[in-house]
């Protein structure tokens, strides 16, 4: 399905159908958490969610038409942002709590057992609180999440992409997802003058998601370097890629 062949409404319906299932931790560790047991729970959950994230990305109209190089670069750049914005959506009705999974719900102070994680919990809770104040709608959330993926990387993408028209396709995709978000906001019945203000407020929050993700990546790397938690498979690959990318 080519994105510009879809109406904004059809694009949003496709995003609804693309939504990944909510993942469960399954074997929940006993409380109180230790630094190791909390990090182990969070990384196990992240690894499971990452597999579903790839299935989700492939269902976004036009994503698999991008070059494989571009698909990898986009996911490599924003995977933690996507996990975090999903966490915020699940937590939006639960002030002071982070709903990592239905069987992994953490109060803010439970983060005290992991060195350096409270700062990140507070960023996540603050951004979630702002989304709650804005009364973020589900369809707006779906558009923002897809926008994070499609907007995840630019300059190296343009230069490095071995498929020049992939960048053109990506720009079409970004326009299509922007049209979809504008359409969702317009459908909400807000007075026209307030629609652009709402769009700006939602887009401004994406920089906070990116900031929390950068902090989270640093923290996860430090936890791994200190051998607090073993990291395997896809999560290890994505984490290493960020390390290499920084260098």
């Amino acid at each position: 399905i080519y994105p510009n062949a879809l109406s904004p409404e059809q694009f949003v319906i496709t995003l609804i159908e693309a939504e990944p299932p909510n993942v469960l931790l399954m074997n929940r560790p006993k409380k109180p958490f230790t630094e190791a047991s909390m990090m182990m729970s969070l990384t196990k959950l992240a690894d499971k969610e990452l597999v579903h994230m790839i299935g989700w990305a492939k269902k976004i109209p036009g994503f698999v038409e991008l070059s494989l190089f571009d698909q990898v670069r986009l996911l490599e750049s924003c995977w933690l942002e996507i996990l975090m914005v999903g966490l915020m959506w699940r937590s939006i009705e639960h002030p002071g709590k982070l709903i990592f999974a239905a069987d992994l719900i953490l109060d803010r102070d439970e983060g005290k057992c992991v060195e350096g994680i409270l700062e990140i919990f507070d960023m996540l809770l603050a951004t979630t609180s702002r989304l709650r104040d804005l009364k973020l709608q589900h369809k707006e959330y779906l558009c923002l999440k897809a926008m994070i993926l499609l907007n995840a990387n630019m300059f190296p993408l343009a230069m490095g992409s071995n498929d020049p028209d992939s960048s053109v396709k990506l720009r079409h995709l970004l326009n299509a997802i922007t049209d979809a978000l504008v359409w969702v906001i317009a459908k909400s019945g807000l007075p026209y003058r307030q629609q652009s203000n709402r769009l700006a407020n939602l887009l401004m929050l994406l920089s906070h998601v990116r900031h929390a993700s950068n902090k989270g990546m640093e923290h996860l790397l430090s936890m791994r370097c200190k051998n607090v938690v073993p990291v395997y498979d896809l999560l290890l690959e994505m984490l290493n890629a960020n390390t290499l990318q920084d260098h």
Partner: peptide, 23 residues
């Protein structure tokens, strides 16, 4: 090639069948 090296699992999951297979 460095990107492919860095992302063996990701490449495989992106190229494998339907999204539901991946999940």
């Amino acid at each position: 090639s460095s990107l492919t090296e860095r992302h063996k699992i990701l490449h495989r999951l992106l190229q494998e069948g339907s999204p539901s297979d991946i999940s």
